[in-house]
Structure formats: structure tokens, C-alpha cells
């Protein structure tokens, strides 16, 4: 009798948990050990401090409204979970998008704002693991994703849409898969789950989720490429310099 009630409660609360939660790569409080979350805080705060410095020296005031727009779009897009085969879903994380648009420095500040709003206002992603979430879903994209996109784009032709397309698509996909690997490692280091199974499961799903990340990133980037290519941190040379970048 009691077992029946207990299991009913358990299954209904699990059902509620799985339908309400919007995790994607958002780690909740409790999944990471204290040393792992603290290390992530240190890394994230260090990179954000570096970004603050570079934004101060490298950007002009015209970048400010764009930072607002970029944060608004990434926040909104993160709410839209797209289904992937196998009864799972994913959503944009946006690090590579922010990096390609605004450069790694302003891009990093933008993604940090998004994850702070999600954790503080909407209980999405734990507050004690916010440093990890900012690093995993934001900074891996704004730094790693940005430099990979730039290398590919500049190799294929800085001024060509082909270079832009390949650079942003590949970097967006790779950054999501790398993030999944990093999350698996953090979970394993925390003693939450063994590394092997965590890696296999995380990579399996995020190979698919990364395709969605690449598609949305390409759509957003193509809109800016057609309307205001001067707003890229690395604009095509025919429009000379970025509208907001200090030379």
C-alpha cells in the first residue's frame, strides 16, 4: 500500500521534473562537487575579468546596444527546445554566435549575462554551479568557437559567404560537442557518474544537438551578413572596420 503510493508520487514527480526542466547543458545544483564548481568559478571569473579589460580598450559605444540585442536573442532562442530523434531535445547555447558577432570579449560578457538571468530569475541551471555553466555553454563558444570560426573563415576567404558559413557552422557544432565532453569530465571528476558512460551518452546526444546549434547560428549570422556586415567583430574587408571596434 505504502509502496504503491510512494512509487506513484515518485513517478509523477519525475514526470513533472522532466517536463518542466529545460536543462540542455545546464547543470543543476548538486551534480558537481565543491572543488569542481570552485575551479570553474575561478576560470570563468578570470576570463570574464580579461574580457572586461578588453571591452574597455577595444570597443566603442556603438557596441553597447548590440550587446543588448545579442543577449536578448540568445536568451529567447535558448527557450526554444527543438526535438531530436530518440525522444530528446536540445536548444541553442549561443556562445559561438555571440563570439562571431561581437568578438570573444563583448561576446563573453553577453553570454555571462544570459546565464545569470536564467539561474537567478528562472531557476534554470544551479547558482552554485553558475561558474561551470558560464564556462561550458558560454566561454567555450565565445573563445574556442570564435577562434575556430575565424581560422576556418579566414582560410576559406574572409570576404566570402562560403567562408562565413563554413566557419560558423563548424565552430558552432564543435563547440557544443566540446562542451558536452567538458560536462562529462566535470561530472566524472565530481564522482557523479563514471567517465566512460558519461562521455558516451553526452557525446551521442550532443552530436545531434550540435546540428541544431549550427543551423540556428548560421541563420542568425546570415541575417547580419546580408543586412549589416559592418556589425561583425571581423567584418568583410570591403566594409573596412567594424562599426564599433577601436583601431
Amino acid at each position: 500500500m505504502t509502496t504503491v503510493t510512494f512509487s506513484t508520487i515518485l513517478s509523477s514527480s519525475l514526470l513533472q521534473w522532466s517536463t518542466q526542466s529545460h536543462l540542455a547543458l545546464h547543470i543543476p545544483d548538486g551534480f558537481l562537487s565543491l572543488p569542481v564548481s570552485l575551479s570553474c568559478w575561478v576560470i570563468s571569473i578570470g576570463l570574464i575579468a580579461l574580457s572586461l579589460n578588453r571591452v574597455q580598450s577595444d570597443y566603442q559605444e556603438r557596441a553597447v546596444p548590440l550587446m543588448g540585442v545579442c543577449a536578448a536573442f540568445i536568451f529567447a532562442a535558448q527557450m526554444i527546445n527543438f526535438p531530436i530523434p530518440g525522444g530528446t531535445s536540445g536548444h541553442l547555447v549561443g556562445g559561438t554566435l555571440a563570439g562571431a558577432l561581437l568578438g570573444p570579449w563583448a561576446g563573453s560578457l553577453v553570454v555571462a549575462v544570459v546565464f545569470i538571468v536564467q539561474a537567478v530569475l528562472f531557476q534554470d541551471g544551479g547558482i552554485t554551479v553558475l561558474g561551470a555553466n558560464i564556462f561550458n555553454m558560454g566561454l567555450i563558444g565565445t573563445f574556442g568557437g570564435y577562434y575556430l570560426y575565424k581560422a576556418i573563415r579566414f582560410a576559406l576567404g574572409r570576404d566570402t559567404w562560403r567562408g562565413m558559413l563554413a566557419g560558423t557552422a563548424v565552430a558552432a557544432w564543435v563547440s557544443v560537442v566540446v562542451s558536452a565532453v567538458v560536462v562529462a569530465v566535470q561530472l566524472a571528476l565530481s564522482g557523479t557518474v563514471p567517465l566512460g558512460v558519461a562521455l558516451a551518452a553526452m557525446i551521442f546526444w550532443h552530436i545531434l544537438i550540435g546540428i541544431g546549434e549550427a543551423l540556428i547560428t548560421v541563420v542568425a549570422v546570415s541575417f547580419v551578413w546580408r543586412t549589416r556586415p559592418d556589425l561583425f567583430f571581423d567584418p568583410p574587408r570591403k566594409v573596412m572596420t567594424a562599426a564599433y571596434r577601436v583601431r
Binding site: S18, L23, L25, N81, F82, T88, V183, V197, A201
Partner: peptide, 15 residues
């Protein structure tokens, strides 16, 4: 938006 469990969510259920 899809209400299917997403990436980490799904993995935490499976594992």
C-alpha cells in the same frame, strides 16, 4: 518548444 528531456537531462535519466 519541445518538452522532451534535453541533452544532460536525458543523460541524467538514462544513467
Amino acid at each position: 518548444a519541445s518538452s522532451d528531456p534535453d541533452g544532460l537531462n536525458r543523460v541524467s535519466e538514462d544513467l
